[in-house]
Amino acid sequence: MTTATRRAAAIPSDFPNPHRLGGRDLFIALLGNPSVTTFNRMLAAGKIPQPRKLGHLNRWLETEMAAVRDSGVA
């Protein structure tokens, strides 16, 4: 999926909820919509914490996402 065809994830009004997990699209939206390739490079470089695995899904705590966003990683 390219950047042009990817749907922007809606950021919940109560973000960050400490009891909720979010996916890659939400994380990308919080970081200012970098490309998926750039996001994967940041993940591989350790700038983004590794996700929790739920079956085949990758999910992060919303509080972790907010911490990364607030640290200025982009």
Rank of each mutant, 00 (worst) to 15 (best):
R24E: 14
A74L: 10
R69H: 06
G32H: 09
R7N: 10
D70V: 04
D70T: 00
R6T: 05
P49C: 10
R52T: 12
A4Y: 09
A66F: 04
A67N: 07
S71G: 11
A9L: 00
L61H: 15
A45K: 11
A66R: 14
R24G: 01
F15A: 05
V36C: 05
I28G: 01
G22W: 01
T38F: 09
R20N: 01
A10P: 10
A74F: 13
R52C: 09
H19P: 06
A67T: 15
A4K: 13
L54I: 13
I48G: 01
A9F: 00
D25N: 11
T37C: 11
I48A: 03
S13M: 12
A8C: 13
E64T: 09
A29Y: 02
K47V: 06
L30H: 09
N17K: 07
D70R: 03
T38L: 08
F27E: 00
R20Y: 08
N33C: 10
A10W: 06
G23Q: 00
P49S: 05
R52W: 14
V73F: 03
S71Q: 13
P12Q: 05
L31P: 00
T5A: 12
P18A: 03
S13G: 12
A66G: 00
A45Y: 11
S13F: 08
E62S: 08
D14Y: 08
R24N: 10
G55C: 08
A4T: 13
G23S: 04
L26A: 00
L30F: 08
L57C: 12
S71D: 10
I48Q: 00
T37P: 09
G22E: 00
A74K: 12
P18T: 07
A45Q: 09
A44K: 14
Q50D: 14
R69W: 05
V68R: 04
A4D: 12
L30E: 03
S35E: 09
L26E: 03
N33I: 04
F27R: 00
L43A: 02
A10K: 15
V68K: 00
D70P: 07
A9Q: 02
L31C: 02
E62D: 05
W60R: 08
N17A: 07
M65R: 02
A74P: 13
M1A: 15
F39G: 06
T5C: 08
R69I: 00
A67F: 01
T2L: 15
R7T: 12
G46N: 14
P34A: 07
N58H: 09
S71R: 12
K53A: 15
I28R: 04
R69M: 10
S35K: 06
G55I: 06
M1F: 11
G55T: 04
M1G: 13
A44I: 11
N58E: 14
A74M: 15
A4R: 14
R59E: 10
E64C: 01
L21Y: 14
G55Q: 09
L21R: 09
T2R: 12
V68W: 03
K47T: 11
P18G: 05
V73N: 02
K47G: 04
T38D: 11
F15P: 07
L57D: 13
R6W: 05
R7Q: 15
G23F: 00
M65F: 01
A4F: 13
A10M: 14
F39V: 06
M1R: 11
M65G: 01
Q50C: 04
Q50G: 06
P51M: 02
E64H: 03
H56A: 15
T2Y: 04
A74I: 08
G72I: 07
N40S: 05
R7L: 13
D25H: 04
P18M: 03
